[in-house]
């Protein structure tokens, strides 16, 4: 927070400086090094991201090899129809949004808490060990994770049933056909896999907080948890906001592997595992229609785009410096 202030002060100085040199070009000239620094990334994004965006036009046409991306027959919005026609449209939209909200809220809380616990450990050795351990899952591909989940959940061979429930004399659970478990399983698997990487991000930001702030606070008699809520969290707010806005932009997307592979494509639980991505996959798996898949992608992007603009405007209203643009 303090730094923020300091930074703003420099901004002001710089600006004043700039004003003093008022002549247009000179003012611009001092920014040239910054533009040069940004240039590689600007060029790269232009090539890698902006040029292929022309491909979005696929969403509005019936792709044929002879026509290519530009010359294929235009079919208007008909490629989008299949997304809204279905009776599943409500279920899949609801699932996608609710799961994403749960991931954003729980994921952020958990990552911050774990990062805090790691940060506060006094012994370097144990910190290193814990930190390495919680990172393991992010090294696994989702296909492997789905087999792991299967090895725990399967009805006849799964660990939970054969090694825990049966020895205890409890009836085994057939997870893959009972809906009620899946919201928990999916959230758990997601958190299990993602915790490691999102936690190191907060850890990095925590380690940059000036210890002087804590010292001052504890001199004033603030307890550990008071320090956590009054100093640590506020210092992390900009990062939290950035991450949340970015996550909001992806709220209509879902991790296909998590929702398709982990439930093993089981039909009985589809009411709670169907998301927009799995619907599109199941619908287009056999026809591989490029126009329709591009349309689905376009739809998700547009919604994400609007939501990002909206959140950013809200953030800007509340605290201008934390807005992304």
């Amino acid at each position: 927070m303090e730094y923020n202030g300091a930074h703003n002060k420099v901004c002001a100085n710089l600006l004043e400086d700039a004003k003093m040199n008022a002549k247009g070009f000179k003012k611009f000239k001092r920014y040239i090094p910054f533009y040069i620094m940004a240039l590689p990334a600007i060029i790269y994004f232009f090539i890698n991201n902006y040029i292929p965006m022309g491909g979005l036009i696929l969403a509005f046409e019936h792709y044929t090899v002879s026509g290519g991306i530009w010359g294929s027959q235009k079919v208007g919005l008909s490629n989008f129809k299949f997304l809204f026609q279905s009776s599943d449209a409500f279920i899949m939209t609801r699932n996608t949004i609710l799961y994403n909200l749960a991931f954003i809220v729980l994921g952020t809380c958990l990552a911050i808490l774990v990062a805090y616990f790691l940060h506060e450990l006094r012994r370097n050795m144990s910190r290193k060990i814990y930190q390495t351990i919680i990172l393991f899952p992010s090294l696994l591909s989702i296909i492997i994770v789905s087999y792991l989940a299967n090895s725990l959940l399967a009805g006849d061979t799964g660990f939970i049933n054969t090694q825990i429930l049966q020895p205890l004399g409890l009836e085994s659970i057939s997870f893959y056909s009972e809906k009620k478990w899946w919201p928990f399983i999916l959230i758990f698997v997601h958190l299990w896999q993602m915790m490691g990487t999102s936690c190191i991000l907060y850890l990095a930001n925590m380690s940059a907080i000036d210890p002087g702030l804590y010292e001052a606070a504890s001199l004033d008699g603030a307890g550990r948890w008071q320090c956590f809520f009054k100093i640590t969290i506020p210092c992390l707010i900009p990062t939290i906001i950035t991450l949340t806005i970015l996550a909001v932009g992806k709220i209509f997307n879902s991790d296909f592997g998590l929702f398709y592979q982990v439930p093993m494509n089981s039909g009985a639980i589809m009411d709670v595992t169907q998301t927009i991505d799995t619907y599109v996959y199941r619908g287009l798996m056999n026809t591989a229609n490029m126009g329709m898949s591009a349309a689905a992608c376009f739809y998700q992007s547009i919604v994400g785009f609007c939501l990002v603009m909206l959140t950013n405007t809200l953030v800007r209203k509340i605290s201008k410096e934390n807005a992304m643009f």
Partner: peptide
């Protein structure tokens, strides 16, 4: 009938295997 088929495929993945 592509729109119908995307929906039918989804209905089938819900019931058919089961």
């Amino acid at each position: 009938v592509e729109n119908e088929i995307t929906q039918l495929d989804n209905v089938c993945s819900k019931y058919q295997i089961g």
